[in-house]
Amino acid sequence: MMEIREIQQLAWANKVAKGFNTSDVPLEFGLLTAEVGEAFTAWRKGLPDFGEELADVLLYLVAVAEMTGIDLAAEAERKIAINSARVYRAGANGTLVRHE
């Protein structure tokens, strides 16, 4: 199974090799947003390509990370540690609210 760092590197190498966008961050966010919409539509309609659409979301996400110099694996590990230490309680309307 591939690690996030490897996926980020391979996705980037593919973009470079194929001549895809490697510098326009706003464009890449727009394309990422479109892929999230495609994944949602595939899930909502029960289409067989839902997994492929989720993979597209991942590939666009790691491309944004690479464009901006972010080690997404390290950031995800850091964020998981932060989230695991957080405490949530039910708010007045039943929604979970972070408790300091």
Rank of each mutant, 00 (worst) to 15 (best):
M1Y: 10
M2L: 15
I4P: 08
I4F: 05
R5M: 06
R5N: 09
R5H: 04
E6I: 07
E6W: 05
E6R: 04
I7G: 04
I7Q: 05
Q8T: 04
Q8C: 01
Q8Y: 01
L10P: 00
L10G: 12
L10E: 14
A11P: 00
A11W: 03
A13L: 03
N14P: 00
N14G: 11
N14I: 03
K15F: 10
V16S: 04
A17I: 03
K18Q: 14
K18I: 08
K18T: 11
K18N: 13
K18A: 13
G19F: 02
F20G: 12
F20R: 15
N21S: 06
N21P: 02
T22Y: 06
P26M: 01
P26N: 07
L27C: 10
F29D: 07
G30Q: 06
L31R: 15
L31M: 10
L31K: 15
T33C: 12
T33I: 10
T33H: 15
E35G: 08
E35N: 07
E35K: 11
V36F: 01
G37H: 05
A39Y: 03
F40H: 13
T41R: 05
T41C: 06
T41G: 09
T41N: 08
W43P: 02
R44D: 08
K45Q: 11
G46T: 06
G46R: 05
G46W: 11
L47F: 05
L47A: 08
D49M: 06
D49Q: 07
D49L: 01
F50H: 06
F50W: 05
F50P: 01
F50I: 01
G51D: 07
E52P: 00
E52K: 12
L54W: 01
A55G: 08
A55W: 04
A55T: 09
D56V: 00
D56P: 00
V57S: 11
V57K: 07
L58V: 15
L58S: 14
L58Y: 07
Y60I: 00
Y60S: 12
L61M: 13
L61Q: 14
A63Y: 04
V64P: 12
A65Q: 07
E66C: 04
E66M: 10
E66Q: 14
E66T: 07
E66R: 15
G69I: 01
I70D: 14
I70P: 14
I70S: 14
D71S: 01
D71L: 00
L72A: 02
A73K: 14
A73S: 13
A74Y: 02
A74E: 13
E75R: 09
E75K: 06
E75H: 09
E77W: 04
R78Q: 12
R78K: 15
R78I: 01
R78F: 11
R78G: 12
K79Q: 08
K79D: 07
A81Y: 01
I82A: 05
I82K: 09
N83G: 05
N83P: 13
S84M: 06
A85R: 07
A85N: 09
R86W: 00
R86P: 11
V87M: 08
Y88P: 03
Y88S: 02
Y88W: 02
Y88Q: 03
R89F: 01
R89N: 12
A90Y: 13
A90V: 10
A90N: 13
G91I: 06
G91P: 08
G91T: 10
N93F: 08
G94E: 02
T95W: 14
T95I: 13
L96F: 13
V97S: 07
R98L: 13
R98C: 14
H99N: 13
H99L: 10
E100K: 15
E100N: 15
